[in-house]
Design a protein around this nucleic acid. Sequence first.
DNA 1: TTGACTTCCCTACTGGTATTAGGTTTTCTT
DNA 2: AAGAAAACCTAATACCAGTAGGGAAGTCAA
Lengths: 223, 223
Amino acid sequence: MRDDRRLRRRTETVQEILDTAIEVMAEEGVAALSMAEVARRVGVRPPSLYQYFQSKMAIYDRLFERGMRESVGILEPYRAGLAEDPRAAITAGQQAAIAWAMANPVLAQLLYWRPVPGFEPTPQAFEPAVRQLELLRAALQAAVHAGQLAPAAAGDEGVDLYTALMSGVISQQLANEPSAQVEEGRFTRLTQTAVDMFFRFYAPEEGESVDSDLCPGRAPAAD
Amino acid sequence: MRDDRRLRRRTETVQEILDTAIEVMAEEGVAALSMAEVARRVGVRPPSLYQYFQSKMAIYDRLFERGMRESVGILEPYRAGLAEDPRAAITAGQQAAIAWAMANPVLAQLLYWRPVPGFEPTPQAFEPAVRQLELLRAALQAAVHAGQLAPAAAGDEGVDLYTALMSGVISQQLANEPSAQVEEGRFTRLTQTAVDMFFRFYAPEEGESVDSDLCPGRAPAAD
DNA sequence: TTGACTTCCCTACTGGTATTAGGTTTTCTT
DNA sequence: AAGAAAACCTAATACCAGTAGGGAAGTCAA
């Protein structure tokens, strides 16, 4: 294999740089990432980093993408549960997502805020976000289908309201008690309640739907 | 008066520096505030700024305080309405607060996020935030009293849930469509709905309370 | 094994930043 | 007009991101 060794070593270095960058940001602040400090910790001179990343923004971009992938990956195990009890699956998935955010505050800030002047994620880094939104919509749709939510919940407004609600929980927690654990966080503790509030608001009308797979009445109309 | 002229001129300069700082942050990003750039625009050399502010963080602190004061000041006109129809007053006040945030995105970011590494508001800058929280609690309490909300809504959890919800709306709007106007913002448009959701969740039990001063019936609960 | 090629890392440099030290000029009061 | 205080300056320190260009080391084909 021609470049196998080199390539492997290169990707190792790339990962080491990214990990170190997260470390530095955790200590100094997300917007205070310093190429010089990363270089120092990696054991190299600052210009050498530019062999691996075109600029500091490229590091932010890769980390944004990593954060997106990880946070959407967290939800994967809960997809199966959507068939059975969507509400339970959504609740559990939401708990997991918020736990991830608290365990990875640096990435969470990158995803939920806009802390770095001049940084905007490239479309390719943003791509997992699109999938995540689709996943949420599908989940809400499943709940609608199961008669746990009114149809409007899976519409644009419902999805936006849901994301606003949950990003609010994360945001407040990050801003006010950044280093708290999930269980004890003043805001993250509210996750369950927040989900309940959403479901209550979009409770299906009396006698509405319940049209599970067999019922010819109304289709999922995913979108 | 000895220092009257000087003092007035001094506070003028202080205000000019603060206004310019907001301007720079609006263009370059909140965390990209540059003393050198501010000095350039004010027409002075960078070291001269230190006659007015001990450090860059001191500027952030003053702006944080200004933002807090302004945003709590916005709510003042709606306090009167609490006696009559708390829900209507809360809704209107919330709309106004979110409109203010969109009209002052720089200050809003400072208040709702934590975008500046190393900056934490001093207690004195934070003081209006305490008042704001008290005001919110009082407003919710008034709604409870008027039979528009269950008592839990004005408890710690209710207040935190409310702030999470609203900061989520602002947060998502700032992160995704920072320069949108309130009316057309994808998330700010949801303000009314968000308030409704909260009120629905904390709807008083059937036949609960209604222990208002005079009224024996029950309040609007437009829902 | 040698020569060519590529990758990696370096030093040196440019032009930017926040902040401090210490001196000069302006402004106001007496 | 003299003196004090405030305002502003230049100079310097110690950082930072990023570029240019050169040397060393690994890897391939002959």
